[in-house]
Amino acid sequence: MNKTTKFSRCYLLSQLIKRDVLLRYRGAMFGVAWIFLNPLIMLAIFAFVFGQIFQARWPQQESGAPFWLVLYSGLIAFNIFADAISRAPAAVRSYPSYVKKIIFPVEILPLVPLGAALVHGIFNYLILLAALAWTGHLMPMALFYPLALAPLLLLALGLAWFLAAWGVFIKDMSQIVPPFVQMLMFISPVLYPVNAVPEMLHPFYQLNPLGTVIDTCRNVALGHPADWLSWTIALVLGLASAWLGNVFFHHSMEEFADVL
């Protein structure tokens, strides 16, 4: 693939992501301003409910950032993954006219939900930085948050290619995936730290690369030591997921036009 082709595909992908994001807010009174307002409102609710009403604390946390910020720092990572995966089954099926065009690079379609999720994730991250600065807990290490996300993005990419291909043949995938994503949120250390889990379950949690990345992102955001060895293992698993997903998608792609 030459440089011109790569540039064309990147430009096409950026336009599809832009279209996807704009369509989500089309007709809304505040338009794309909701991309900033939604996370801001969510953070304000977290601060009020967990900070003022429940006065909750992170398990075994004696000092440091308030509970609502700890929770929000992990949710940003999970929401990027959840948004991309939940919408992946319809990524190809939603564009039947594109699939039937021989010259269209169909393999970029599963990247559109992930790209849109990343756009929203960027705004969430900026609000997190502002909130950390406002509460006096902003550390230089928080700038490495995007790097800590790398394994999660690769894992989401691989799963998106798998689910987008399956979604063409099995329309029920759009209904099956979201409940599993919800379940995944509760079995991953999003709302609680790993050390709050019974010790006998720790080996199972260590097998979950999503949990490893969320925990790393949270520690990086709050300036705490991170387990970079586990993160590296998650990165390798993410690379394997992306490669396998890409191979599976290209293997299935020849039959898309016939099904759609």
Rank of each mutant, 00 (worst) to 15 (best):
N2Y: 04
N2G: 15
K3G: 03
K3H: 07
T5L: 15
L16G: 03
R24C: 01
Y25M: 09
W34E: 09
F36A: 15
N38P: 00
L40A: 15
I41W: 08
A44W: 09
A44Y: 06
F48V: 15
F50E: 10
F54H: 08
Q55P: 00
W58E: 09
S63F: 09
A65E: 10
F67D: 00
F67A: 11
V70H: 12
Y72V: 01
S73P: 00
I76R: 10
F78L: 10
F78M: 08
A88W: 01
A90K: 11
V92G: 00
K100D: 05
K101C: 02
K101W: 06
K101P: 00
I102E: 14
P105L: 11
E107H: 13
I108V: 14
L109P: 01
L111D: 04
V112C: 07
G115Q: 09
G121V: 04
F123G: 02
L129S: 02
L129K: 05
A130Q: 08
A133F: 14
A133T: 06
A142Y: 09
A142M: 07
A142R: 02
Y145L: 09
L147V: 15
A148F: 03
P151G: 03
L154P: 06
L154K: 10
L155Q: 11
A156T: 05
A156C: 10
G158F: 05
L159H: 03
L163N: 02
G167A: 08
D172M: 07
Q175P: 01
I176L: 15
I176H: 05
L184P: 03
V190E: 01
V190G: 05
V190C: 07
Y192H: 05
N195P: 01
Q206H: 14
L207A: 12
T216W: 02
N219P: 00
A221Q: 11
L222F: 07
A226Q: 04
A226E: 06
A226V: 08
L229W: 13
S230W: 01
V236D: 01
L237I: 07
G238I: 01
G245F: 01
V247H: 06
F256M: 03
A257V: 13
